[in-house]
């Protein structure tokens, strides 16, 4: 790595903790699992020790279909840091998963100007390092 590269800040990398480690492990396997409450069947995201609906601690990590629709989005033109400078414009979005949870993400594999609310998307993974793969979404074929 050259000296000039070392001046560029890295993108933020999620921190792994007791509550989210199974989630990041599933993304690493490219087979995303979310928590489903054992008491009330409510699917939740982000990872949490307790059900947001019924307050139960009982849950199961459960595979999701990876399908969803764009609930809302914004095309980012001004990079938040130099780490994102070469990627603008890109799409920040919230995807409504088929199972219910809303997931902040990027929409990739499509021109930013083509993205619309309601677009059908499917999960794809960006391997960031040995620990983290970010769940991103691309148009369904």
């Amino acid at each position: 790595m050259t000296a000039s590269h070392s001046q560029i800040p890295s993108k933020p990398i999620p921190l792994i903790d007791e509550d989210n480690e199974a989630f990041w492990a599933s993304c690493r396997r490219h087979a995303m699992e979310l928590q489903r409450c054992s008491e009330c069947d409510y699917w939740r995201y982000y990872p949490s020790p307790v059900c947001h609906r019924c307050s139960s601690f009982e849950f199961e990590w459960t595979p999701v279909s990876g399908l969803g629709t764009v609930y809302t989005y914004s095309v980012v033109y001004r990079p938040p840091s130099a780490a994102f400078a070469e990627e603008v414009p890109y799409v920040y979005a919230v995807v409504e998963l088929e199972e219910g949870p809303m997931m902040p993400t990027n929409i990739v594999g499509i021109e930013p100007s083509e993205v619309t609310i309601g677009l059908s998307v499917q999960v794809t993974y960006e391997d960031v390092n040995d620990s983290i793969a970010l769940p991103k979404f691309e148009p369904q074929p």
Partner: peptide
Amino acid sequence: YEHPFGPLLLTFFAA
């Protein structure tokens, strides 16, 4: 669960 995807703070309001 938000910032790895590169939003500006104002991107949330834009959405």
